[in-house]
Nucleic acid binder design. Structure first.
Lengths: 227, 227
DNA sequence: TCAAAAGTGTTTCCCTTACACCCATGC
DNA sequence: GCATGGGTGTAAGGGAAACACTTTTGA
């Protein structure tokens, strides 16, 4: 091959972006999947994703995917890894760059995005997915666990105001182990990133829990020091 | 655009692989850089890397780069991130997938790879690099520091047999802070991944240090449990 | 007054940190 | 015998983990 031919040969790859989108509902960590409409994987479940155009950025593309699903792109989004395995695509080689995102999932989003071609499933009940998406999901799960213990990102999965019990259940679900209530609360209050906001008005039995808000300013202070 | 045209438009990207190759010499953490020969960056320093062909895997490509530099591909190699920023390349858009690798650098490799177009430089003296390679290097440095305190990978930068003083100096250099000798040794011996191997035969003044080897089996045991 | 969930302190243990002297060797 | 680098133990402090009862509320 001549040099010019070789150079042209390089620019024949596709790059896709895939997003593992996490939500928390009914006490379960859920992930959004959708059915593929085009061959060769038509009918199979997959993580949302798309091929990017030469002028699209990776972050912009993944935010676009998020926006398509939940109508809002301002969420916690972090790059995982590039997946270079050569999987079949009708037109050629695709390298996939995976992200994971955390959203607060009000009921309407879930309802709106649940039909024959879209759904949220518990991470423990994810079916076989197309491409290497089960591997992507596995990596995302590991990363999420690690982040959760090192940085206070759990809030991103909850509404603005939440109770400490909510938060603890979320941690227990994701880390897959029970946590001690007193130790959990001690740790959080010591971090100082929670602000009390009155009491929840439930009509549940039992004492009314206090509501808390996540204090973004304090969080930023910590982040600057690198935790 | 018709669907088929759109699909073709996707497959016009290039993917490159870049390797941050670390070595340890003269008490300094060093990184390998080389001069670019082709335009538009001809003459500028950069990290080693290359565009991949549609049939090349990411890992294979990065191992190939390592092999070109040191003649051996079996080293510690870990993916960093994909860098999607659109930087100019004569033929189009390139997304870069960066790796970092740790090698034991005997003198001959350094000598062999030091001339007008190739060199090892202390990470503290790295010049301006082409593309976004200074960003890549920054991320690699952060990752290396984090890994070093969480997993025993420091050995990968030393010869098979080494003294505890060597190892401590390596940690101090990379973490950029002094460590306590007794605490350092305590921690390592407690981990149990070091095997004593007799004494070094130096002609230095002072007591002869013991030599240690890294115990890969013990390390694997730890890794399975996730540390 | 009972059931259900919220809230609250203390002790133990282990890991981390700080700290100073003796030992072996070559010259 | 002295200069040089190698090697070792102990005490204090701080964070993580274990553990049980009281408070508030609605029915």
């Amino acid at each position: 091959m001549k040099d010019s031919e070789l150079l042209e040969a390089y620019f024949k790859l596709g790059i896709s972006v895939t997003v593992v989108l996490y939500g928390f509902d009914e006490g379960k960590l859920q992930v959004y999947i959708q059915k593929i409409r085009t061959n060769p994987y038509a009918g199979a479940w997959s993580l949302p994703g798309k091929l990017i155009l030469p002028e699209e950025g990776l972050v912009e593309a993944s935010e676009g995917i998020v926006k398509e699903v939940i109508g809002n792109k301002d969420i916690y989004l972090e790059q995982l890894n590039a997946f270079g395995k050569i999987y079949r695509h009708p037109l050629g080689r695709v390298v996939d760059v995976a992200f994971y995102g955390l959203i607060n999932m009000p009921e309407d989003i879930k309802a709106q995005r649940t039909d024959k071609e879209n759904k949220w499933v518990s991470v423990k009940e994810v079916p076989q997915l197309a491409y290497d998406h089960n591997d992507v999901l596995k990596l995302a799960g590991q990363r999420l666990k690690r982040r959760l213990v090192n940085r206070p990102i759990g809030f991103k999965l909850l509404p603005q105001e939440f109770t400490l019990t909510d938060l603890q259940q979320l941690y227990e679900e994701i880390l897959e182990r029970p946590l001690d209530k007193r130790n959990f609360r001690k740790k959080l209050t010591k971090l100082g990133i929670l602000t009390a906001e009155g009491h929840e008005d439930t009509s549940n039995p039992g004492r009314k829990p206090r509501l808390f808000k996540f204090n973004q300013d304090k969080y930023n202070e910590y982040m600057e020091q690198g935790f």
